[in-house]
Amino acid sequence: MAHDPATRRLRPPTTEAPFARYALMAIAFLFLALFLLLPLAAVFIEAFRKGAGEFLAAFGDPDTIAAIRLTLLVAAIAVPLNLVFGVAAAWAIAKFEFKGKAFLTTLIDLPFSVSPVISGLVYVLLFGSGSLLGPWLRSYGIEILFAVPGIVLATVFVTFPFVARELIPLMQEQGNGDEEAALSLGASGWQTFRHVTLPNIKWGLLYGVLLCNARAMGEFGAVSVVSGHIRGLTNTMPLHVEILYNEYNFVAAFAVASLLAALALVTLLVKTLLEFHYGAEIAAGRKH
């Protein structure tokens, strides 16, 4: 079909002039390079500044090993807890009608809107020496603040929205139809969850767990308040990085930091893969 030269010059209505398009793209890329790629590269460059030997030596330090171990431990407790909580909360909100549902939904978002420092301070107020609970628990030999339980609590608090937020829109969109079908075929509640609900939400769940884990390992603010910064005991990786840096031990600081950066990159990679393969199934919750 021959094009009229007059119409050929017209752009599709939603496209901008080439200049505007390239300018917008350039701004986006420059901005990302300046604020994301450059710092990320700097972390790795600093870590390897004195060679691979020094880099590896940083991980021989017992305090560093303790920090890595603590971070893994905290994530290993906080992530499963939030997985269970997230599924339960999403199930309740998406599939039932009850009083206070809107309130519960708002509460789940609370950690996103509150500064992490406040999240930490809440636990200091709850379990500190001036509180009611702290001394009582201490009389039974249970330490919360400046110990592992406090760090776990703060991490759980900060990371609990991730799984729930991912699942609520997904489960709302899916509705009750499949569950009703399973029940009508004689399946028990647990069988329905195990064979129908869980497979329907598994990619969204994995996505939420991934984000939750990344935050659990990387959380600084809330953990910093409750940890007490005891070397080798209550320092997580992000806290340990800060300590090493403040001691002018740049190579070690950046070496540990590079580990966290690597975690971020892996998370990003897995997240992209998940979105690529199961985009439609997790699309409902893709807004972080």
Partner: peptide
């Protein structure tokens, strides 16, 4: 309960288990 009634229910949008 619905399980005990032993009914066959065909849903409007079929509700087949997609996985």
């Amino acid at each position: 309960t619905v399980q005990e009634r032993n009914i066959g229910f065909v849903f409007q949008h079929y509700a087949l288990f997609r996985h």
